[in-house]
């Protein structure tokens, strides 16, 4: 399976898309640092906190979209090109192929997310940020894992659904997830029964804004309580379990 993942990485890593993502991430970072400060009178937040916080928020949304783009069609394409049969002849079962593709997608998404944040890393190192080495590494890891988790979710969807539908659902997942708590609050606020039901249903969707808050709290060295971390780990665990079970199911039911 390792060789298969390596092959997947070789196919998707590098090239124009990585350069473009690097430029895009750099531009976002520079724009937000020069003109994107969210500031209003009597705001007690320090300017530097506001600037870096907005950076992480924007980058995590972009990383989410990148994960969707990377993962939305790989499994469908793999099946269409009949590579599965060839690999099965080389004793790589369908279950392992699916797992390999999902993990490969997660790794590519994490690499893309890292490329997106290259300029931010330079800013953190050279311009000085209110963080420490450990705080930054922990924040960066949670940021990458969030993108990886999204890639795994989208990969699972692609096992059951065509890539066009997966793309739409993936984008929806990123948008709703990035403003999960706000949207849920609005649904609860309207007082309607349907709103309350939808708000409960939303608990299934990954709260990317909570994951982003975890990233920021690690970065700003204000991690406390651990509730956000537990939620993050619960979703990570659930996602990995679902990926594993889906791959197992695909391996059992698909006969070539």
């Amino acid at each position: 399976m390792k060789a298969f993942i390596k092959l997947h990485l070789k196919e998707y890593v590098g090239g124009k898309s990585f350069i473009l993502f690097g430029i895009l991430g750099g531009l976002v970072t520079l724009i937000l640092f020069t003109a994107g400060e969210v500031s209003f009178a009597n705001n007690p937040t320090e300017e530097v906190i506001s600037q870096f916080g907005s950076q992480w928020k924007f980058l995590s949304i972009m990383a989410g979209f990148a994960a969707v783009v990377v993962s939305m069609g790989t499994i469908e394409k793999h099946r269409r090109e009949k590579r599965a049969e060839l690999l099965m002849l080389h004793r790589l079962g369908l279950e392992r192929q699916m797992l390999g593709l999902a993990i490969g997608n997660a790794l590519v998404s994490m690499l893309l997310s890292a490329v997106l944040a290259v300029v931010l890393i330079f800013v953190v190192i050279f311009a000085g940020a209110p963080t420490s080495f450990i705080g930054f590494i922990a924040a960066f890891l949670s940021y990458l894992l969030t993108a990886g988790m999204l890639a795994l979710m989208v990969s699972v969807l692609n096992v059951f659904l065509p890539s066009v539908v997966v793309a739409v659902l993936g984008v929806l997942l990123v948008i709703v997830g990035s403003f999960h708590q706000t949207i849920q609050g609005m649904l609860l606020n309207n007082g309607q029964l349907m709103g309350r039901i939808l708000a409960k249903v939303m608990n299934i969707l990954p709260p990317l804004d909570v994951f982003n808050r975890l990233t920021r709290s690690l970065f700003f060295l204000e991690f406390r309580g651990g509730q956000d971390l537990i939620i993050f780990l619960v979703y990570l665990w659930l996602t990995l379990t679902i990926v594993f079970l889906t791959a197992k199911r695909a391996g059992r039911h698909e006969k070539i």
Binding site: T45, I49, W56, K57, T182, G185, D209, V210, N212, S217
Partner: peptide, 24 residues
């Protein structure tokens, strides 16, 4: 009222740290 965590979740657009959210 909401609890402090839900309030921060609702009000935070990425520009708040924990102490500012508490003040708000």
């Amino acid at each position: 009222l909401l609890n402090a965590r839900d309030f921060r979740s609702f009000a935070d657009a990425g520009d708040l740290d924990a102490s500012s959210a508490d003040l708000y």
